[in-house]
Amino acid sequence: MKKKILNIQTVSVTEAIEKQRIDNFLIKKLKTIPKSMIYRIIRTGKVKINKKKIKPKYKLAIGDQITIPSIDITEKIIKKNTITNIILHKKQIENIFKNILYEDKYLLIINKPSGIAVHGGSGINFGIIEILRKLKPENYFLELVHRLDRDTSGILILAKKRSTLRNLHQQLREKKIKKIYITLVHGQWPKNKKSVTVPLLKTKLFNQKNVVKISEKGKKSETQFFIKQQYINHTLLLATPITGRTHQIRVHTAHTGYPIVFDSRYGKKNLDLKLKNKNLKNRLLLHSHKVSFIHPYYKHNITILAPLEKQFKKYLNLLL
């Protein structure tokens, strides 16, 4: 495959293009370049005006000197770095916007559906972050504050400013962000089992998938549990992770002997088969339900709640 490169360009602003926003100007000028790539080169400072970094909303003035960097538009690179080859249908777009729980100039918080990865990679072409960058190109900075497993639904926080991202990462390190998950496990969870504290070690399998196991060589981890409702053969739990290790809640419940329903990695297939329903999707019954933190800019406490997905609720109704 031949490399296709647009060479570095310098454009002098005249009356014909003055007062245009720089993002709109570049979109018109670079018609073969995906919008997501254009916004990326702006937010990373590769596009300069008068040798200075600018924001997408900057309005051109007569005499401005626009420097456009060389851009590799090889087909392979475009497919790797953008989702222009992914078509989002109207219902999918509506579903994403419908699941926005909170939004302001600094934050975007969504109720992520089960089955969608938070980002592309490891054989996945795109994830929720790439989708939102495509749907909201006006946000020149949009980054994940934390992650959720692909099959876990619920609250996902994204930062619209680098300062917001730094602040929330600091709150995570200082354990000021409180999260509560809802999960359905097999068996009747013991009433006296309030927490699980074991060291966890993350390793990779031959297929490059992460797997976490209990090991003295691992890192300290702790999850607190509260029984929300008990059924004959299952328990609905509220789980609060004190530490934030990969697959922490899933490994802690499995280690205790009460695996999460439909957990294909740490669960028990023989138990899952007893609850399986041909009319319902067999999704991991783990949901990030509530998060509390200090708003990075307004400095007040903020609490977000994410309702359960319909499939999760339907499985709970089967147990009544």
Rank of each mutant, 00 (worst) to 15 (best):
I54V: 15
P56L: 00
P56S: 07
K57Q: 13
K57R: 05
Y58N: 10
Y58S: 10
L60P: 07
A61P: 06
I62M: 02
G63N: 05
G63K: 04
G63H: 00
Q65P: 10
T67C: 07
T67Q: 02
P69W: 03
I71F: 01
I71P: 01
D72R: 03
T74V: 01
T74Y: 06
E75S: 13
E75R: 13
I77M: 08
I77H: 07
I77W: 00
I78M: 07
I78G: 04
K79Y: 07
K79N: 14
K79V: 05
K80F: 07
N81T: 14
N81L: 08
N81M: 04
T82I: 12
T82P: 01
T82Q: 04
T82K: 01
N85E: 12
N85V: 11
I86M: 06
I87D: 11
L88M: 11
L88A: 07
L88K: 06
L88F: 13
L88Y: 11
K90P: 14
K90C: 05
K91H: 11
K91Y: 07
I93M: 08
I93C: 10
E94D: 14
E94V: 08
E94K: 13
E94I: 10
N95E: 12
I96S: 00
I96G: 03
I96V: 15
F97W: 04
K98E: 09
K98Q: 09
K98D: 09
N99T: 12
I100M: 06
I100F: 01
L101Q: 02
Y102K: 11
Y102H: 09
E103T: 13
D104M: 10
K105D: 14
K105V: 08
K105N: 15
Y106P: 14
Y106L: 03
L107P: 15
L108S: 10
I109F: 02
K112R: 04
K112A: 04
P113Y: 02
S114P: 11
S114E: 06
G115M: 05
G115R: 00
I116L: 13
A117T: 14
V118L: 00
V118D: 00
V118H: 03
G120T: 12
G121Y: 05
S122G: 13
G123Q: 05
I124S: 00
I124V: 14
N125D: 09
N125I: 10
N125M: 03
F126K: 07
G127P: 08
G127Y: 00
G127A: 05
I128P: 12
I128W: 01
I129M: 05
E130K: 06
I131K: 00
I131C: 05
R133D: 06
R133K: 15
R133S: 09
R133F: 01
K134W: 01
L135F: 05
L135S: 11
L135A: 07
K136V: 13
K136F: 10
K136W: 01
P137W: 03
E138W: 00
N139E: 13
Y140S: 15
F141L: 09
L142I: 12
L142F: 03
L142N: 07
E143S: 15
E143P: 15
